[in-house]
């Protein structure tokens, strides 16, 4: 087992909406600094699992631990990049203001100057500093996604969670997004949630698949699958190098050999 501290752990977690069992006996963990992918088809329970991590829902059975405590208490350590599909293009807001939102506190107010400085730094990190004053609605889909990454980075998170980061994105934008994420690999725990079941970015250390049902259970569970590099994967199709998910090679969900990134990169 790895000696690297654990960032996120699910232990025998079950969750249901009223009588509808969504997740049942989910066990897996992610180490600090690890780059993981959580893949599963639509309706498999990805969103529910994400809500449990973000502390927006509570499990009825089992335990979720985020950096050693309840997600509700530690969710401020998460930099969350949502899909934001219900985004209103008529909302008047600049790129800088969207990013500044990443440092917003629950009820108190901070000085605007300090928030502006942090927001500009985060925008530079995703190479979008020159677009700070632009209206957010004028950006392309790919640019908007990187602005949301910058927004997640503002508060200096220990873990980045990206929900379907490459949905409706062209290969060039996808490559730029993963180039940005590469900078944080090993330093920040990164979890990507996606419905793309076959391939993941080559940055990925471990892949967890959601959707399988154990015999006699109604809810879905999470299993870990093996990954192999795809030598012949066209980079323009996968936004850079890719790894193939081996769905027929199942690893125990808690199995890991993560060494803090010494053999990855």
């Amino acid at each position: 087992m790895s000696t690297v501290p654990i960032a996120l752990r699910f232990s025998h977690v079950s969750f249901s909406y009223d009588t509808l069992a969504v997740l049942e006996d989910v066990n897996f963990h992610i180490h600090e600094g690890e780059f993981s992918a959580l893949v599963g088809p639509n309706g498999s329970g990805k969103t529910t699992l994400l809500k449990l991590i973000l502390g927006l829902e509570q499990s009825q059975k089992g335990e979720v631990r985020l950096f050693g405590d309840q997600p509700k208490k530690n969710k401020s350590m998460i930099g969350y990049v949502p899909q934001h599909i219900t985004y209103d293009p008529t909302f008047p807001i600049s790129v800088l203001e969207v990013v500044r939102m990443g440092g917003v506190l629950s009820t108190s107010r901070r000085s605007r100057a300090s928030r502006d400085k942090a927001a500009l730094q985060a925008l530079e990190q995703v190479e979008m500093g020159e677009l700070a004053q632009r209206p957010y609605s004028e950006l392309s889909g790919g640019q908007r996604r990187r602005v949301l990454v910058a927004r997640a980075l503002v508060a200096g998170p220990k873990m980045l969670i990206l929900d379907e980061p490459t949905a409706n994105m062209d290969a060039e934008s996808e490559k730029r997004l993963f180039d940005t994420l590469r900078l944080f690999k090993g330093k920040t725990t990164i979890l990507i949630v996606t419905h793309d079941m076959s391939t993941v970015s080559s940055l990925t250390d471990r892949v967890f698949c959601i959707g399988a049902q154990k015999p006699g259970q109604k809810g879905r569970t999470v299993v870990q699958h093996s990954l192999e590099p795809m030598d012949n994967a066209p980079a323009e199709l996968y936004g850079g190098e890719a790894k193939r998910v081996l769905h027929d090679v199942e690893l125990p969900a808690d199995y890991c050999t993560f060494d803090g990134g010494a053999n990855n990169g």
């Binding site: 973000l54 949502p82 807001i93 939102m101 990443g102």
Partner: peptide
């Protein structure tokens, strides 16, 4: 108003 889900994650009631 802009992104309710994100606001929730940031701890805004």
């Amino acid at each position: 108003s802009f992104d309710e889900e994100f606001a929730q994650v940031r701890g805004i009631p």
